[in-house]
């Protein structure tokens, strides 16, 4: 796996020599299995593999870069990268500012992770990452929200009792629950918020967006996207 990634990185650099325009993909790098920085210091995860495949199909040279979640849209606007591919749910609020491709992950449910299956969500604070749809959801539904800057801290808050549960994408929480040796469990209650995960572009970048959109369509049609979703998010994941 590591070698393979090194190879893709080299392809990225090779493209520079051709003086072709590079499309810069911006991600967060802290949201496994969507995207994370692996132990070799490279961007890794579902979106890495998916993004590289899209670039190949669209015949574009791509380069990865990471940015803190809470300034990921302003930095797209000011041109520090050209695409956001960071597990970002398509919402009306964001749609006003940026343009999304079609969704590449179906509307996923958000789940609660807690210390026990009968945790009472109203008995304490519910953790969520700052400026996510989940944080807004918790606040709007009468629960007390406690916000952290990174997804990592939200889970830590549940473990040390600061929050009764964390609300986040189920695909992010599932491996954490599975590997916690029963310390953490997913609640039966799930929420469906947001409209699927898409790539975000500046309003003015229609040409590039259409290329990516076409590539996503082709990946959906030949089933590679579904295979990738199953590979990263497990056999029960929703597919197209």
């Amino acid at each position: 796996m590591k070698k393979l990634l090194l190879a893709t990185a080299l392809v990225g650099f090779g493209g520079v020599a051709l003086a072709q325009d590079v499309v810069r993909l911006g991600t967060e790098g802290a949201y496994p299995p969507y995207n994370f920085i692996n132990d070799a210091g490279e961007v890794d995860g579902f979106e890495r593999k998916f993004g590289d495949e899209l670039c190949k199909r669209a015949a574009l040279t791509c380069e990865w870069t990471t940015n803190e979640w809470d300034s990921i849209i302003p930095n797209l606007q000011s041109g520090n990268y050209d695409v956001i591919i960071a597990g970002m749910s398509i919402t009306d609020e964001r749609e006003e500012i940026v343009d999304f491709t079609q969704a590449y992950i179906p509307p996923a449910s958000s789940a609660y992770l807690a210390l026990s299956a009968d945790a009472d969500l109203m008995s304490g604070a519910v953790a969520a990452q700052t400026s996510t749809i989940q944080a807004a959801f918790v606040a709007e539904n009468g629960m007390q929200v406690v916000e952290y800057a990174t997804p990592e801290e939200t889970v830590a808050a549940v473990k040390n009792g600061e929050a009764v549960a964390v609300l986040a994408d189920k695909d992010y929480l599932k491996p954490i629950a599975a590997e916690s040796n029963g310390e953490l469990v997913l609640l039966a209650k799930e929420e469906s918020i947001g409209g699927g995960v898409g790539m975000a572009f500046r309003d003015s970048d229609d040409a590039v967006r259409e290329k990516f959109d076409a590539a996503i369509t082709s990946m959906k049609e030949d089933g590679t996207l579904n295979a990738m979703i199953l590979e990263y998010f497990g056999p029960e994941a929703k597919t197209w």
Binding site: G29, F36, I37, I176, E179
Partner: peptide, 18 residues
Amino acid sequence: ARELGGSKTNSYAYPHRD
């Protein structure tokens, strides 16, 4: 420090606690 220290699931080569 934040990135390396955070707990790692099996998606990483070196899983560990927080």
